[in-house]
Design a protein around this nucleic acid. Structure first.
Length: 582
RNA sequence: GCGCCCAUAGCUCAGCUGGAUAGAGCGCUUGCCUCCGGAGCAAGAGGCCACAGGUUCGAAUCCUGUUGGGCGCGCCA
């Protein structure tokens, strides 16, 4: 009896023809010319004894006007499979095949080691360019894990696209203006030695003051107007505060590995001349009008927007100052003009309606709407995060706590390493804990963040997968002589645990393809977990250095190398390092 | 009220382009360090896949409705 630890349910050839197994498909089509490749759906039988590949005969049977069980039995006899298939048989309406483990295993190991850091890539992005905008936090506080979700998703998608061969550029939109930043600037003037850590307090104070003191609020607006009009002093003050904040935020974000190629400041788009043309086109389409209060408004109804709520989108205030959306449209033009094949942004689910509105306006003006990945909020056990109530988990705090716990563990396990090395490993463990916890969940789900669970490092966690890598490295380090480079004639992978592991490894390219298509790295995270589990089962069942003979040791060392390479590639997409020791 | 998203074990989540008996982890129970790293492994208990209809040879998966949760509907950004 075996459970999911056996043959992976997600097969490399599921739903599509992959070169490794295309010969099976060809053999069947040769025997049944009436069928086509699309009729053959490859899956996995419920257990190993039944075979490695299962093909349901429902569709083919319908096409051939026969009963599925009858066709399965007939096909098992009639089709002449190549040497790759060691056994064929029918189980009810399913045609089950067993593969030659050693020959197939050798092919898998060969492919992994040959392709190295590129194993898993389908090259689907070759020659294509993509622009990703993510994170883009308001410069007012240290990022909490909810904000971090955006950065980690965006960063992992970037890694995924680059892995697939896309030329990717990463943009960060700096919201360096607006009423609230104006208030923050005012308060900042009253505080000496304002640093990043004091920003949040100042921000909360400024907003509270604005509510209780209308005069203060009015001064904030005045300052904003001066800034928009180009007053150098006002601009300089805005820049000083937002720079301070951005720098602090980026320091935290860089700890989790997020990097950006361009920082685009919102203030740059206040008076963008290209918007004249946009306005003209909107007028031509009959969607732009000045309302009774002298505001410049877009009516989305003629553009196919069906609801009354959100139908009208204000672009400019009566006093002629621009709204956020107006500047954002100008920014979109900037991004569009960079001429990438895909224009992608990662946004919180609170931006859904807004992004839809902006998209409609852009399309009406003759531009393509950006593609958007929405992520849902991270909730805490006792409810939503609230900055004002102090109910937040700051990314920096989490990393500090996690690293402190991890360093104790590393000191125990690797006393031979220097304190600096131990500290560096602990930091990667902390990063892996948070990145993995966030990335293994699909972006659209509300998740409840459990601080205790995230700090435990046991079970289905990033550190568990890292630990698996450290273990493999340990075996490779201890093996005597040169490591084998490629499977030879004596290569064997007959043991169930070896075979299951190799089958999982072979499915990696399909997991990557699925992740690109679904626009989420969650399948990669779950794949790495499955792979680590399967490796550990192999580790317990199949001694490598103490195998029965040298040939077996060599085969297993090769399997170790292939597993490590695949794990490293998967973890790299998640922004997690695979340590030598931990 | 209207719109979008979500609902799977006590808890946190996989599985969703329809296929055989729905899976992990945490927590709980029981074993396993003279043996390549126990951040581990093996086993057990735990499910009306929110509810109700529909499509199909076949539905956790697709469609409709209901319920519950998240988000949004600003001269905020």
């Amino acid at each position: 009896m075996h459970s999911s630890r056996g043959i992976p349910r997600t097969l490399p050839w599921k739903g599509r023809r992959v070169n490794l197994f295309s010969t099976i498909s060809d053999a069947i089509l040769k025997a049944y010319p009436e069928l086509e490749a699309a009729d053959l759906i490859f899956g996995a039988p419920p257990n190993l004894e039944m075979g490695d590949v299962a093909i349901p005969m429902f569709l083919p049977a319908r096409k051939l006007r026969t009963a599925p069980p009858k066709l399965a039995a007939e096909a098992a006899e009639r089709v002449s499979f190549g040497p790759e298939v060691s056994k064929s048989g029918a189980a009810g309406p399913y045609l089950n095949l067993s593969l030659d483990r050693s020959a197939t295993g050798a092919r898998i190991v060969n492919a992994v080691l040959e392709q190295g850091n590129g194993f898993g890539s389908n090259g689907s992005g070759t020659g294509r360019r993509i622009l990703v905008e993510h994170t883009s936090i308001n410069p007012n506080a240290s990022p909490h894990v909810g904000r971090g979700r955006c950065a980690m998703i965006g960063d992992s998608m970037t890694r995924l696209f680059r892995f697939e061969g896309y030329d990717v550029e990463v943009h960060y939109y700096v919201n360096d203006m607006g009423r609230q930043i104006g208030l923050l600037v005012l308060i900042a003037d009253e505080i000496t030695d304002l640093d990043f850590n004091g920003i949040l307090d100042a921000y909360v104070r400024a907003n509270a003051l604005a509510e209780s003191d209308p005069e203060f609020a009015a001064r904030g607006y005045e300052l904003l107007v001066k800034m928009e009009e180009g007053d150098p002093d006002a601009q300089q003050r805005f820049k000083a505060v937002t720079d301070l904040c951005l720098k602090g935020q980026l320091e935290v974000l860089s700890r989790v590995g997020a990097t950006y190629d361009y920082f685009d400041r919102e203030s740059k788009y206040v008076n963008d001349p290209r918007m004249d043309q946009v306005q003209q086109r909107l007028r031509d389409r009959g969607v732009l009008f000045t309302d009774e209060k002298n505001r410049l408004v877009a009516d989305l109804a003629p553009l196919g927007y069906a609801q009354e709520e959100g139908r009208f989108f204000v672009l400019m205030r009566a006093n002629g100052s621009s709204m956020y959306g107006y500047r954002d449209i100008a920014y979109s033009l900037d991004k569009i003009e960079r001429g990438t094949d895909v224009n992608l942004m990662i946004l919180g689910e609170d931006h859904k309606l807004y992004a839809q509105q902006v998209g409609l306006i852009l399309e009406a003006a003759g531009y393509p709407a950006p593609e958007v990945i929405y992520y849902s909020y991270i909730l805490l056990k006792d409810g939503k995060m609230s900055t004002r109530q102090g109910k937040v988990v700051l990314l920096a705090d989490f990393l500090d706590q996690a690293a402190a716990l991890a360093v104790e563990r590393v000191a125990e396990q690797c006393p031979e390493l220097s304190p600096e090395e131990q500290g560096a490993i602990a930091e990667t463990v902390a990063v892996s804990a948070i990145r993995f916890a966030v990335l293994r969940v699909k972006p659209g789900k509300n998740v409840t963040f459990d601080m205790e669970a995230a700090l435990s490092f046991t079970g289905d966690t990033g550190p568990y997968v890292q630990y698996c890598c450290a273990r493999i490295n340990s075996i490779l380090r201890k093996s005597v002589g040169a490591l084998p480079v490629a499977p030879g004639a004596a290569f064997a992978s007959a043991h169930d645990s070896e075979w299951a592991l190799l089958m999982k490894i072979a499915s990696f390219p399909a997991v990557v393809a699925e992740s690109v298509q679904q626009r989420t790295c969650a399948p990669v995270a779950n794949f790495s977990l499955d792979l680590a589990h399967l490796f550990t089962a192999f580790y317990h069942d199949c001694p490598v250095l103490k195998a029965q003979n040298a040939a077996q040791t060599e085969s297993r060392l090769l399997i170790c190398r292939a597993a490590l390479q695949t794990l490293r590639n998967a973890l790299d997409l998640l922004g997690i390092s695979a340590p030598e020791r931990m």
